[in-house]
Simulated scan of single mutants.
Amino acid sequence: MLHPSISFARIIQQQLVSPKFSAIKDIVRHMGAMQAQDAYAAQFAIASRLNKRVKEIDIEKAYAAREIVRTWLFRGTLHVCAPEDVYWMLALAKERLWKTMQTQWRNAGLDEKTMAGALASIKKLLKGGQQVPRKQILEMLTAKGIDVSNHRGTYILNRAAYEGLICFGPKSGKDFTFVLLEEWIPKPKPIPRKRAVEMLFNRYIESRGPATLKDFAAWSGLTLTEIRTAVKNIEEHTINDQAYIFPKNYVLPAKGKHPVLLLPAFDEFLLGYGDRTVSIKADYEKEVYKSLNGIFSYIVVMKSAVVGIWKRTLTNKNVTIHIDLFEPINATQTKELQNAAKQYGEFLSLPSTIHIQQKKAVSTLRDGTK
């Protein structure tokens, strides 16, 4: 059930209100790892958590400067993390996923000999600091007689990432490139697994608490048994029959202004937890979670709860933001939505048009920002 105080506390820890970080690399490090299935949504997720305005191009520059890294991490999903974290996080994620992934590879007809050949070819192609788009890598593999159809190409890139061979590099035009991970980010000394679990848990609670052990297990893909073995002296507080773990020295706010937020698809505000019911009503879940194809919509948050979804339509001259609300809002909230949409346009360096639809009313607001 909805719990606005818990949800508001998460908004604070996730830096979605009164953020304390100004550097892109610092907010990513604070969050530990951030969902990045949708690369452009992830860029806005980062920008939404900073105390200064940054643009889409600034996030792309941070990738190019090796201040942040995008690769496959927890649960077999793309994430953004800090460069100093990528190796130990890969090691944590790989062990739990390996059996599942190997089954997928075998079912796709990718035996170990084929995989080894593909990875050797990718390494040769990228060696010496080469930054190569996905399409070109797959074309090279095809030319060598390796079938990359029906997700095989993705499986090969997954394998290369979890082996620590590749990660995403900077953009080349409109395309994201891949680079050799050890050329891009020097490999540090390994961290013992138990210590790594504890580090990830602490980072998670500080950036997403209050949360439960099950929330952390769902987000990280680790087992509760391993978590309880690695993390000692956990102090839990029972609220609504749920045992929550709070960040250190944290006091749940009794009052505070709940911001109106436009958050991107796959945002950690929802995907950072196994149990999302404190922040979204059950009646709205089917609108937000497109579970059949794994898509999570862009969301509207008011009073620390999800109250709608949104999408964008881009042209070279304008971004139109279509907002579909699940419940009516007042004039003040409409103005705050307009401001949030304007900020999104500024992030894209485009003027914005905001189209708001609710139960019995439709309004269109325009911002002339250039």
Rank of each mutant, 00 (worst) to 15 (best):
L2E: 01
I11F: 03
I12P: 00
Q14R: 03
P19N: 03
S22Y: 10
A23Q: 15
A23W: 10
K25D: 12
M34S: 13
M34I: 15
Q35R: 04
Q37W: 04
A41R: 07
A42D: 00
A42N: 00
Q43E: 06
S48I: 06
S48F: 07
I57T: 14
I59E: 03
I59Y: 11
A62F: 13
E67S: 03
R70D: 04
L73K: 04
C81N: 06
E84R: 14
D85Y: 06
W88Y: 13
A91W: 01
R96Y: 09
L97D: 02
W98Q: 11
T103K: 14
Q104F: 06
D111K: 10
E112M: 01
K113P: 01
K124I: 04
L125K: 15
Q130L: 02
V132H: 06
M140L: 06
L141N: 11
V148N: 03
S149L: 14
S149T: 13
G153L: 00
N158S: 05
N158C: 07
A160N: 00
Y162G: 08
K171Q: 09
K174F: 03
F178Y: 15
L180R: 10
E183A: 10
W184Y: 15
E198R: 08
L200F: 14
E206N: 15
R208C: 13
A211K: 03
K214Y: 02
A217R: 05
W219P: 04
N233M: 04
E235L: 13
T238K: 15
I239N: 12
D241P: 09
A243Q: 13
A254Y: 02
G256N: 07
H258N: 08
V260D: 00
V260L: 09
L263V: 12
P264N: 00
F266S: 02
G274H: 10
T277G: 08
I280H: 09
Y284A: 14
K286T: 11
E287M: 04
N293S: 08
I309Y: 04
W310A: 11
T313K: 13
F326T: 01
N330S: 07
A331K: 03
T332A: 14
F347W: 00
F347R: 00
S349M: 11
S349W: 00
L350I: 05
K360P: 09
V362L: 12
L365Q: 03
